[in-house]
Amino acid sequence: MLNFYPGPSKVYPEVREYLTMAYDEGMLSIPHRGERFVQMMRDLVGLLRTKLNIPQDYFIFFTSSATECWEIIAQSLTPTKSLHLYNGAFGEKWYQYAKRLRPDAYGQSFEVDDVLDVPNLPVEDDTDVICVTQTETSNGTQVNMNTLLKLQNQFKDPLLAVDATSSMAGLNLKFIRADIWFASVQKCFGLPAGMGVLVCSPRTIHRAKALNDRRHYNSLVFLHEKMLNYQTGHTPNVLNLYLMRRTLEHKPFIKNVDQSLVQRAQELYAFLEENPEMQLLVENPEVRAHTVIAVKGADRWVQEIKRNAAAQGITLGNGYGPWAKSTFRIANFPAIADAEYDVLRNFISAHYH
């Protein structure tokens, strides 16, 4: 079965071997305050910095999911309010989640084909955090690094937080363009679901310490204090940490991963645009995501193509949110091999042209 679902998505084939290694090495029953765990974490943090190009002075934490990172940002870094810029279901969910914890949180939506209009954003004076979704998984759009730079330059005081769930470990993110980045591992990391990665600038930690919120099990000050000794706040997903360390050891640098993913995305977009039966949801090439591609059509046609693909052993991603019935999505993640996209293209050419 070929899996093009945009998360949980295909795991790296090597994971099968690493699972056995974790068991054989006794890693599944090590204490998370012990020396072996600390050494593994030290190695892992070093690999994340090297392979994903994370600045040396940024801090790396591990959570249960990207959704937990929403909670940490609201609780530990937002005394008053956050501004949420969104054009899709996940950005809006983040906004709704933050609003439940911080009722003064406010949102600004923009259209799928729009480039974020930074100079005209309604940023209120007492905004603590500006929240942006880098790749919007629900509709296959992205906010590029240049837009993040504009946000950073125009709004100096608020922290800039970026949901990179569908792009971290796939695209060469410029981490210095924002204060907070986070992702879940079931997409570009090519790992089983059940873990998140949170990356914070020195300014973020400074803010967390100044607020010193310690009321929650995942308060950022507490996570930071533990991580100074390469430990997690509470018993973590040791298996996934081990799998991440093993996969990163054998992966190329993010610059190379990014190049091949972007090229493959451009080829897929070109192929789909040439097909008279295929319509891309995102018409503006400037805001098309490189890691999630959304194809739209009549509801019945979308159901039919997913059904026909499944009969050929190909899983296409369902649409999501407002686009649930009128689109299907194709993941373009590093764990999926080029040959698998050849099979997908052949299927589309044979049945839809």
Score class of each variant (00 low, 15 high):
residue 348 I to R: 02
residue 233 G to Q: 08
residue 323 W to Q: 06
residue 339 A to P: 05
residue 340 E to C: 07
residue 267 E to P: 00
residue 140 G to T: 11
residue 166 S to F: 03
residue 158 P to C: 00
residue 112 V to M: 07
residue 185 V to C: 03
residue 2 L to A: 12
residue 228 L to D: 03
residue 209 K to G: 02
residue 249 E to C: 04
residue 300 R to P: 01
residue 108 Q to P: 04
residue 166 S to R: 08
residue 235 T to M: 07
residue 186 Q to S: 01
residue 284 N to F: 02
residue 137 T to A: 06
residue 116 L to D: 14
residue 135 T to H: 10
residue 152 Q to F: 03
residue 36 R to M: 12
residue 4 F to L: 15
residue 228 L to C: 03
residue 84 H to C: 14
residue 101 L to R: 12
residue 346 N to P: 03
residue 253 F to Q: 13
residue 126 D to W: 01
residue 141 T to S: 14
residue 109 S to K: 02
residue 334 P to N: 06
residue 68 E to R: 13
residue 198 L to M: 12
residue 67 T to V: 10
residue 267 E to M: 05
residue 303 Q to S: 09
residue 299 D to E: 00
residue 55 P to C: 12
residue 217 Y to Q: 11
residue 51 K to Q: 10
residue 324 A to S: 05
residue 344 L to N: 03
residue 339 A to M: 07
residue 182 F to A: 02
residue 264 R to D: 06
residue 168 M to V: 03
residue 80 T to W: 09
residue 151 L to G: 03
residue 256 N to R: 00
residue 158 P to V: 01
residue 138 S to D: 13
residue 81 K to S: 15
residue 234 H to D: 14
residue 162 V to H: 03
residue 306 K to M: 05
residue 261 L to Q: 07
residue 82 S to R: 08
residue 217 Y to D: 14
residue 79 P to C: 15
residue 122 P to Y: 07
residue 6 P to I: 01
